[in-house]
Nucleic acid binder design. Sequence first.
DNA 1: TTCTTAAATAGGAATCATTCCTGTTAGGGG
DNA 2: CCCCTAACAGGAATGATTCCTATTTAAGAA
Lengths: 131, 131
Amino acid sequence: MAAERKSEKRDAILALLRRVRCHPSAEWVYNELRRTYPGLSLGTVYRNLRRLTESGLIRSVGVVDGQERFDGNLSAHGHFVCQGCGAVLDVELSEDGLDALAGGGSHGRVTGVEVRLTGLCRDCLDKDIRA
Amino acid sequence: MAAERKSEKRDAILALLRRVRCHPSAEWVYNELRRTYPGLSLGTVYRNLRRLTESGLIRSVGVVDGQERFDGNLSAHGHFVCQGCGAVLDVELSEDGLDALAGGGSHGRVTGVEVRLTGLCRDCLDKDIRA
DNA sequence: TTCTTAAATAGGAATCATTCCTGTTAGGGG
DNA sequence: CCCCTAACAGGAATGATTCCTATTTAAGAA
């Protein structure tokens, strides 16, 4: 069988995504893991992020400032994306609301839900006021 | 004053986005409008889509298969994105669903909401069964 | 253990959506 | 009619992501 072979790099990427609070891009993961694996290739990071996403072990948060961002937290929650600094923060969603969102299944089989709020985070609001 | 000057191309792009049901990419808009404006430049389409989005006359639906998609329908609704064919379909959001999103304001000022369901549309489900 | 096969990887080239740059055109106030 | 500058076309540049190839390596079989 075409089994999935054990891979130290892939395990490290998954562990990193599960550990951190932020929502990393491929490049961020690359720079972070290069400290442990100096020979790490950027292509390896992209390939494994893709595989992990396809296998459902992590999920994509979508593209922010041109870069795809990932999340190792699979629990039901949304994201607040700051248009000023690109920060991505978790947003709790109520049970009822999530059930209501899931109702979109009339178009086919729904396999994922992503709720994105965009705006300015507190820090960037403060900067605006000063400017 | 640095006023915004009248622009036939920008008006045409806005009118097109308001008229169509689909959720076009820049290239789709370009190909469509070139029939009316043979000398239209792709850069002009990108520039105006960006301006229209920034001024809130249209909104971005996010990136699908590497291309950003836009929507001239500003009413509150979500989107179903088919991972098979890339189709984007409107999804009605219930009151409860919308209420669920209200909690995100604690991180700052929320200016936009996007709800994206991903999965396989009916057509692509049928194809899978045949294969 | 040794052999074998294909997955995993590094490194770099290729792709492609999007943005940027430059010279030109044209809207509209004075 | 003049001037300033937004809007534009055309094409070059950018940059995230994917693809390609030679090499390494996991892990089942002999």
